[in-house]
Design a binder for these strands. Structure first.
Length: 597
RNA sequence: GGCCCUGUGGCGCAGUUUGGUUAGCGCGCUUCCCUGUCAAGGAAGAGGUCGCGGGUUCAAGUCCCGUCAGGGUCGCCA
């Protein structure tokens, strides 16, 4: 690798004692200046590191250097000298040397900064996004983006080693039949018609399996017009899109689990990656963790204790589904702890959160609902939860579709507070056995997740079972409570697909009309196949230990899906609209901000 | 679309609960001092219609109403 040019003989992270007494040229940004009056220290920064440049008052450059604002881009020529004993900076790779500058040339001037690049001062995110190029110079974000590149490079290597071939699939494509909102692109050649940006290359990768390529992968851009979250960027994201022919569910796991394990171990920086990944059935995940993306770092689980309160006289629990969350080690937790857990549950929509604490005798309990429990209920509750002295038990009662959700954040936070939480590991799991159908508002079966998944049991299950009892060959891989990916063994049999859609209320004619391309391909010799698509941004977010996905994306949109730096989206010019045969009709809400006189 | 939090010099924050003299602090910026710092140190200084509009009051950064903006979250994300 040769990085030298007129502008530099070395990078700012390169010089060591062995280059001492040689003349070098460096270019970079003026990171920081320490002016001692009689001696001036400059930190020069580039992508590779920092080098200390020294200027003395007898130098003709002294005044120039004193006047240069931070973040000015300069080229310097100087002599590398070893630092005196005691002046070595052990925190800096280049800390054993410094450069005595003899020439300086300003390559790029810098105006007053909106925020400081040096250091780790907090800054509002909208300002950071407006000046993203400055933000990206800062150490933390810069490092995240470099890490992202290293992770993606390693993913390519690992996938190639496993026999996968990398593809590119269209960006201008057809609207997705199901799912999130599409981004549409108007067609100039076909007035009134639109392309859609792909929400995922789902159909293309299946078609590639039918084309005989056997193992496909792509670092695939995906576009969804949905609202953002801390772990979900609005508009666009990347996924490691994978598809394999002649496989069953365990064969997909057998490839992806080693890839994720190897990737995470390499970049884990001391954190452990326990294997094998546990397989948790969807229904069990809801019961034990209150969510289908459990954070296994929290070492406590919920229990269904509806039976304990089957004949209770306590009105809040009577006739309800009751879930218990036993949390050991609560003996010393103050009342405030329990109150805070209750507010967590309330944020999820719970009306309240009951709790009791087992006293040192291991038998009696105190707490918000202690006086409402009969002796029999108390004993049954302790037995059902395995609670012993000092265990706090949180209790939520209500509709089965809601109670789990209320306790989910309590489970994680209570574990964190009581030390039953493993901060230093990546805890993966496979969530499996998703239901194929669920009942909609009118009580009719509807696809609960992916309509193109193969039902477990195939045609026989579809024709003989109650739809809500049918499971799909569909799975998620979850790490530390973050859903990295969904995946499935696909339905490659047209007859089974038509029957599956029929159960969800779609007549064959409609399926033929909407998914004709896919059905046609299935009729010309489709291999059994399946795949998965872990989110690249979320992987980087986990490995960079960032709570927000925008910290691992160079140029993310803000929550309103705007690019504050480039000014997108923006109104189209009249010429654009004319070429595309479009007229803009603004909603009332968009015009009221600018009332005409 | 709903809910929660936030909005005070260039940047980050305190002050708002309980209205009351000149709105504080840190960083940055300007000027000066300083020959070994690496978050350099010291002295002085500039910089604010407290997001915007309306209201209550003798008096509003502080209370009330509305509105805008940013973040989080629910819906949504097959």
């Amino acid at each position: 690798m040769n990085l030298t040019s007129r502008y530099r003989t070395h990078t700012c992270g390169q010089l060591r004692l062995e280059q001492a007494h040689s003349t070098v040229t460096l270019s970079g940004w003026l990171h920081n200046r320490r002016d001692h009056g009689g001696v001036l220290f400059i930190d020069l920064r580039d992508n590779y590191g920092l080098t200390q440049v020294v200027v003395r008052p007898e130098s003709p450059l002294f005044q120039t250097w004193q006047d240069l604002p931070r973040e000015t881009v300069v080229r310097i020529v100087g002599e590398v000298v070893p630092r005196a004993q005691g002046n070595v900076n052990p925190n800096l790779p280049t800390g054993e040397i410094e450069v005595i500058a003899s020439q300086v040339e300003v390559l790029g001037e810098c105006e007053q900064l909106p925020f400081q690049v040096a250091g780790n001062e907090k800054t509002g995110e909208d300002l950071r996004l407006t000046y993203r190029f400055l933000d990206l110079r800062r150490e933390g974000l810069h490092r995240n983006i470099v890490l992202r590149a290293a992770i993606i490079r390693r993913l390519r290597e690992l996938m190639t080693q496993h026999g996968f071939t990398e593809f590119q699939t269209p960006i201008l494509s057809a609207p997705s039949p199901e799912g999130a909102r599409d981004f549409l692109v108007p067609s100039r050649l076909h007035p009134g018609s639109f392309y859609a940006l792909p929400q995922a290359p789902q159909q293309f990768k299946q078609l590639l399996m039918m084309s005989g390529f056997d193992r496909y992968f792509q670092i695939a851009p995906c576009f969804r017009d949905e609202d953002s979250r801390a772990d979900r960027s609005p508009g666009e994201f990347y996924q490691l899109d994978v598809e394999m022919s002649f496989v069953e569910q365990e064969d997909v796991f057998g490839v992806i689990e080693p890839v994720l394990t190897e990737l995470f171990t390499q970049f884990a920086q001391g954190r452990s990656v326990p294997t094998p990944f546990p397989r948790i059935a969807y229904r069990d995940a809801l019961t034990a963790y209150g969510t289908d993306k459990p954070d296994l770092r929290a070492d406590v689980t919920m229990r269904d204790v509806t039976q304990v309160f089957a004949s209770t006289t306590f009105r809040a629990f009577a006739g309800q589904h009751v879930r218990a969350l036993p949390v050991p080690g609560c003996a010393d937790q103050p009342r405030k702890f329990f109150d805070q857990m209750e507010s967590l549950a309330k944020e999820q929509g719970a009306k309240g959160l009951a709790w009791v604490k087992v006293e040192p005798d291991g038998v009696s309990v105190t707490g918000s609902v202690a006086k409402f429990l009969s002796d029999a209920e108390r004993e049954a509750l302790l037995a059902a939860t395995g609670a012993t002295a000092g265990t706090g038990i949180f209790l939520a009662a209500g509709d089965p579709s809601e109670v789990n959700t209320w306790l989910a954040p309590v489970r994680v936070e209570a574990a964190r507070r009581t030390g039953a939480f493993d901060e230093n590991s990546f805890r993966f799991c496979w969530v499996v056995d998703f239901p194929m159908y669920e009942l909609d508002d009118e009580g009719k079966p509807a696809f609960s997740h992916n309509p193109f998944s193969m039902p477990q049991g195939g045609m026989e299950a579809l024709t003989s079972k109650d739809p809500v009892e049918i499971l799909a060959w569909q799975y998620d891989v979850v790490c530390n409570g973050i859903e990295l990916s969904s995946g499935a063994i696909r339905n490659h049999r047209p007859d089974i697909m038509l029957t599956a859609f029929q159960i969800a209320g779609y007549p064959a004619t409609e399926v033929e009309q909407r998914f004709g391309g896919m059905l046609r391909a299935l009729r010309f010799g489709a291999p059994p196949h399946g795949g998965i698509a872990p989110g690249v941004d979320r992987i980087v977010m986990l490995l960079a230990d960032q709570p927000n996905i925008r910290e691992v994306i160079a140029f993310p949109l803000n929550q309103q899906a705007q690019d504050l730096l480039m000014g997108a989206p923006a109104p189209a010019t009249d010429r654009h609209l004319q070429e595309l045969h479009l007229q803009v009709k603004l909603p009332a809400s968009a015009t009221k901000k600018d009332p005409s006189p």
